[in-house]
Design a protein around this nucleic acid. Structure first.
Lengths: 153, 153
DNA sequence: GGCGATTAGTAAGCATGCCTTATTATCTGA
DNA sequence: TCAGATAATAAGGCATGCTTACTAATCGCC
């Protein structure tokens, strides 16, 4: 008896998988010499996906606190990869846009993440990749849905 | 055209899934009031899985640097959840064992991670859970294998 | 019009995880 | 016996993401 109950294996699997994947993406981005941290790259990708969003909306979409996003945007802006414009309809709000210079960077980010993905899913058949993708998507939906206020009550 | 190419969706899915899962486990452990950080909990689980291992072996199994493990063990030891004994066959090495007091804590950690898992996989059928588990396991194997330098060989 | 409540963004500071580089003690093998 | 490898550790660094608190602007409502 090795204390090898399935639950514990699955919990570790989740935690390890999550951790390792993060690490690989992190390292791959670093090796790419883009000067982007994973969070910055992720932010860039989301800005590209939802152009002309407000910061609050972007943060909600990314599932991070607004404050966390501010830090990413600060760094991206100082690299001239995004622009913050004032929302003409609300002077408190800002609209985030991709800077033109960001386009090639974005392509390279995609290249990097694609490579990580390929390595992680090396011997998977295409339908297995799709299956994994579908399951993960459902899992993410469950996770984000199960958090009401964030602190919850 | 929403720049909605599949690659980028999958990359974000991987990154987001990894991040969110980590966060949930983190928060669940904190709410449980065990006074354990995720890393500590993970370490505890691994010590239980491979009792009487050396630190180096444990670190390799956990896929962290030895130095990272030292920090976790320091904290676990100061809480009397693990014990470090000298390896009788090598005075440099130490054998890590679970302290008797750790057993109930470990059970509660399992409870917490099981709950996170249940919430994340809410509407999954049992065979889907198994499928996900199998795919993740293969992915983890790919990831750890693809690291030449330190990931063991 | 004006006052309170809410909202957008931000400042500051903290904990965690994980790494890297370097140090000390010990072991091993030629 | 002595060089080189190995086990654990010390010290320090960076990124992530959070929380709490503050400012400015807007909205709701009388």
């Amino acid at each position: 008896m090795l204390t090898n109950r399935p639950e514990e294996t699955f919990g570790l699997l989740l935690a390890d998988g999550a951790r390792l994947l993060r690490l690989r993406i992190d390292r791959a981005l670093e090796e790419a010499g883009l000067g982007l941290t994973p969070g910055e790259a992720r932010t860039l990708a989301y800005v590209a996906l939802s152009p002309a969003s407000r910061q609050t909306a972007l943060a909600a979409q990314m599932n991070v606190e607004p404050m966390t996003l501010v830090a990413f945007l600060d760094r991206l802006e100082s690299r001239h990869l995004v622009v913050r414009e004032q929302d003409p309809t609300d002077r408190r709000a800002k609209i985030v846009r991709l800077a033109p210079e960001a386009q090639p960077i974005l392509e390279r980010v995609h290249g990097v993440t694609r490579k990580v993905q390929e390595r992680a899913l090396q011997n998977f058949r295409p339908e297995e990749v799709e299956m994994l993708q579908a399951l993960l998507k459902r899992m993410r939906a469950n996770i984000t849905a199960s958090e009401p206020g964030r602190g919850q009550e």
